[in-house]
């Protein structure tokens, strides 16, 4: 059932990208979707999108807002005349409480696009995410910031 839904969504995306919703093109999109899903069959986990649509939407809104804020922050840093004094780069190990691959991927992507942070690596046992910070205030403040902000939201989506 979920795979069927995913196939339909992929076929519709194909039709949207190629710009024509004719029957033949939809058929082609469906064929491509089936091939793609067959190739990725080990990675496709069960999507539970419908029930959590509202939480996903709230996360997406927060994400767009944070993204624009982060771009402005980076722009300000870039235009600072004395660049070296404005920067305090650091790589911080942030402990993870989310466990599944999908959650870690989403969290890492969100961290990369939020103000002043960029995820670099995940430790082998998946307990620590290494984050590069542009201007570090304190290590503890950053960890608390991520745990109460995005990590809580990501957990709510997958709960």
């Amino acid at each position: 059932m979920n795979l069927l839904l995913l196939t339909i969504v992929l076929a519709l995306i194909w039709a949207a990208i190629s710009g024509s919703f004719s029957g033949l093109n939809l058929l082609l999109g469906t064929a491509i979707a089936i091939v793609a899903l067959y190739l990725l069959r080990d990675f496709v986990t069960k999507p539970r999108a419908l029930r959590q649509l509202r939480r996903i939407a709230s996360l997406a809104l927060l994400f767009v807002y944070e993204l624009v804020v982060s771009a402005i922050r980076v722009a300000i840093v870039v235009l600072t005349p004395n660049l070296r004094a404005a920067l305090r780069p650091a790589i911080v190990a942030v402990p993870l409480t989310v466990k599944s691959d999908a959650e870690i991927t989403l969290l890492a992507n969100l961290i990369t696009l939020t103000p002043g942070t960029l995820s670099i690596d995940v430790s082998k046992d998946r307990s620590v995410l290494y984050v590069h910070v542009l201007t570090l205030s304190t290590r503890e403040a950053l960890i608390a910031d991520i745990a109460t902000g995005f990590e809580a939201k990501v957990k709510a989506v997958f709960a």
């Binding site: 870039v78 660049l83 070296r84 780069p89 790589i91 696009l113 590069h132 542009l134």
Partner: peptide
């Protein structure tokens, strides 16, 4: 920006936006 990792901030965020 002075090094690779700080440059990545500029390229990934400002570039995407």
């Amino acid at each position: 920006l002075p090094d690779l990792y700080t440059r990545m901030h500029a390229a990934s965020k400002a570039g995407a936006v």
